[in-house]
Design a protein around this nucleic acid. Structure first.
Lengths: 237, 237
DNA sequence: CTTTTATTTAATTAACTAATCAATTATTAT
DNA sequence: ATAATAATTGATTAGTTAATTAAATAAAAG
């Protein structure tokens, strides 16, 4: 009585070649959906549907949601972070160049894998994010503390802006990169900035890190009202 | 047959005074839960329970989830943003002082209302966030474009670091403030930075905006033809 | 005393969702 | 060829949870 809608694909093992890489396709679908609607908001069935497969197949390959997440972290995220870590630790020893390398590398990486910023925001930044513990335990410690140590050393040697906290400097760098990429759709609409691409973001951010917000080449309008007492710094070039 | 567990409170209007401000308590509970588990991840029943009320009461006051969100935005978020907007637009006309005012004011505001950063991250930044459209439509336009215009003017007058994009400058400022506050629990743990409070963040961020990451007082490492010039001055530890 | 307001309990309605099984077919190894 | 294994499906089950409404009740306001 239930008229078969359209037996899209009959059961049984499919004639090979066509079916190549179902598992990877499932991972792709999972990533895309997780980035869009969050891990908690995505059912295994949806993942399957998006990959033109069935819920049972997801179960076949991954067992359950948790193991799916493990696979996702191990096979898709960890390698990216490892590469980033390698690049940063190979960068020059001085703090500024480390920071520059980090910014360029992370922007490039996030721009190439556009699913990563939203996923990060949702599932790492968020208190009950499904990836937070996994990433905190395994991959974040490879980069952040390392950077913080470098900045602390630099500060001790007087090579860092003395007003900065080395640890917050790490946080600032992440805020200056992940956040803008994750929020793209908002500010592009709000500020009419469709023309801005990853490269422009990198250049802008590097300029900010290089010289701060104000222009060095001009006499600052002396503004006595605020606490701008500290005119000790030499605006040398 | 079902033995009445404990009729915690009998039906009917309660002896007044004790019950004052149920509605506000429901809003408080909603905010706290939304910040923790997200709007989609919070049932009206949970909100009620946290406010020591019943699901039906939520319905009585707000009708449905959507109207609850409206109330939340109108009564709790919009006023905060309006105040912020006022402060920024009253700030001095030059770009640097506007930026400084924005940073101090937004950090103070977010630190005072700790539910706001996580809520923002989850429900505004996120593609399907429950607050995105509401905020984009009503309150974001009051601040961001205004700032962008100021920075654009400043750049034209040579009062802004010429490497900066005025629109991205707005984005950077937000990334430097909301993000660190939203991610506190992560970096405090990861970087062992429990001592850092909102004030320290403000100072750090203002210093970064003032002078960038490097120290001005030192001879810059002469531009060695490429960055391959990494001598191992590797400090201790 | 009547009406309105605030509040509860209980019932109704409406979904999904994850997980597992048994059946089915293709491929590979023998 | 045949048997074993791998890949895949549809169907079923059972568990969960949520929003909404209706009816009941008590206090407060008029």
């Amino acid at each position: 009585m239930p008229p078969r809608k359209t037996p899209l694909r009959p059961p049984g093992r499919p004639a090979n070649a066509a079916a190549g890489g179902q598992r990877e396709r499932l991972l792709d679908a999972a990533i895309a959906l997780f980035a869009h609607r969050g891990v908690a908001g995505t059912s295994l069935g949806e993942i399957a549907r998006r990959a033109h497969a069935t819920p049972a197949l997801v179960h076949y390959y991954f067992g359950n949601r948790d193991q799916l997440l493990d696979a996702l972290v191990n096979e898709r995220i960890a390698p990216l972070v490892a590469t980033l870590g390698r690049r940063v630790s190979e960068s020059g020893a001085d703090a500024s160049s480390t920071a520059r390398t980090f910014v360029s590398a992370i922007v490039a990486m996030l721009a190439e894998h556009e699913w990563l910023p939203p996923l990060w925001i949702r599932e790492v930044l968020t208190d009950d994010g499904a990836l937070r513990e996994r990433l905190m335990a395994r991959i974040a410690p490879e980069i952040a503390p390392h950077l913080a140590r470098r900045f602390a050393d630099a500060k001790r040697e007087g090579a860092l802006n003395p007003g900065l906290d080395p640890r917050l400097t790490v946080v600032s760098l992440i805020g200056l990169t992940i956040f803008p990429l994750a929020a793209q759709s908002i500010w592009k609409r709000l500020l009419d900035a469709d023309d801005v691409d990853a490269d422009a973001l990198t250049r802008h951010t590097l300029a900010l890190l290089e010289g701060g917000i104000g222009s060095r080449s001009r006499a600052r309008p002396r503004k006595s009202t605020s606490r701008r007492r500290r005119e000790h710094r030499e605006a040398s070039t």
